[in-house]
């Protein structure tokens, strides 16, 4: 009898311990928010601003811990998020098409499949713009076409988002191009364009706006459905509306197989955190604008991006 009581007590204790988390409800411990880049960049700023607000909008008081995981052209971070337990305690921000390109090439096959992630939200997208040095004789896309030689654009390494944007945009617009690749980030290739390493560069519009204001760069084409720069043609006016698909998306996802109830909690809290006035203020100071959208829209963006960039897979260097 004594033995039976002991066993029952032990079983009861075990049950209490194992079922406690379910009774307490999600979330009950800290959430890791993976950033596929080092500290200090735009992605890092987005995550740090959202994380602080997210803690306020989750049902329980826990910490959201931004974790920088740079390296291997984002593969390291994406793989870590893909392999994490789908329990709602690991979420990640994704740079699309950056993370998508390795999957499109498929050689070597990456150890993740982005389409299988549980998508929670989209922070927003940045359209690209084509810009030249502020003192350049090139004033328009037509001038670029009439150069009589391939236009030289500065970008990061071959196969990265900015390199692909430069290759695809010039291809669509019929501008012969030669890419000066190898800059280690947008800051470096923009300064390369200002210095005159090349004729110009392609970068996301918020970045270009800063240097347009200071006169260092001149935007000559806005690769978006409508132009945000007075007197500069947009994708429709250029006669290539498909250029609008060339955008840099920031999506938030969780490992595949995340239970629906947890997904809903996270999605709701993330959307509220992105609309939080403090988050909006911080991001406005960083020169970034957010267009919060739900998980379903994030999945649609991913699919559209995959289809678009698959058409230009020949520009991605093969190993």
């Amino acid at each position: 009898m004594k033995r039976l009581i002991l066993v029952l007590t032990a079983v009861l204790c075990l049950l209490t311990v194992t079922t406690f988390p379910t009774l307490a409800g999600y979330p009950e411990r800290d959430i890791t928010f993976i950033i596929p880049h080092g500290p200090g960049g735009t992605f890092d700023t987005y995550v740090r601003a959202i994380s602080a607000a997210l803690e306020r909008y989750l049902p329980n008081k826990i910490n959201v811990v931004p974790t920088n995981m740079p390296g291997a052209n984002m593969t390291r971070a994406i793989t870590a998020a893909y392999r994490a337990k789908p329990d709602g305690y690991t979420i990640a921000i994704f740079d699309i098409p950056g993370g998508l390109l390795a999957q499109i090439v498929g050689n070597p096959r990456p150890s993740y499949d982005l389409s299988k992630f549980t998508w929670l939200a989209s922070i927003g997208s940045d359209q690209y713009g084509l810009a030249v040095n502020g003192s350049s004789a090139i004033k328009s896309v037509e001038d670029m076409k009439a150069l009589g030689r391939p236009v030289k654009l500065t970008t990061t390494g071959a196969g990265t988002s900015s390199y692909m944007a430069a290759k695809i945009a010039t291809d669509i617009m019929g501008i012969p191009s030669s890419i000066i690749s190898g800059y280690r980030g947008s800051s470096e290739y923009i300064i390369g364009a200002i210095r005159g390493d090349g004729d110009g560069t392609i970068a996301v519009l918020p970045m270009l706006h800063k240097y347009r204001k200071s006169g260092d760069l001149r935007t000559i084409a806005v690769l978006a459905p409508t132009s945000s720069v007075a007197g500069v043609p947009d994708a429709v006016r250029l006669g290539h509306p498909e250029l609008s698909l060339l955008a840099l998306h920031r999506l938030i996802g969780a490992p595949p197989g995340l239970p629906e109830n947890i997904r809903q909690i996270l999605e709701k809290a993330l959307l509220a955190a992105m609309k939080d006035p403090e988050t909006v203020r911080i991001m406005a100071a960083a020169g970034a604008e957010m267009q919060p959208e739900d998980g379903a829209r994030a999945a649609e963006i991913l699919k559209a991006s995959f289809d678009f960039f698959s058409r230009y897979r020949h520009y991605i260097p093969q190993p």
Partner: peptide, 17 residues
């Protein structure tokens, strides 16, 4: 780069100005 992140956190826009 981290320092620029800190400026942003304090509402200062990094840039040529």
């Amino acid at each position: 780069a981290v320092f620029l992140g800190m400026l942003i956190l304090h509402g200062i826009e990094p840039g040529p100005m």
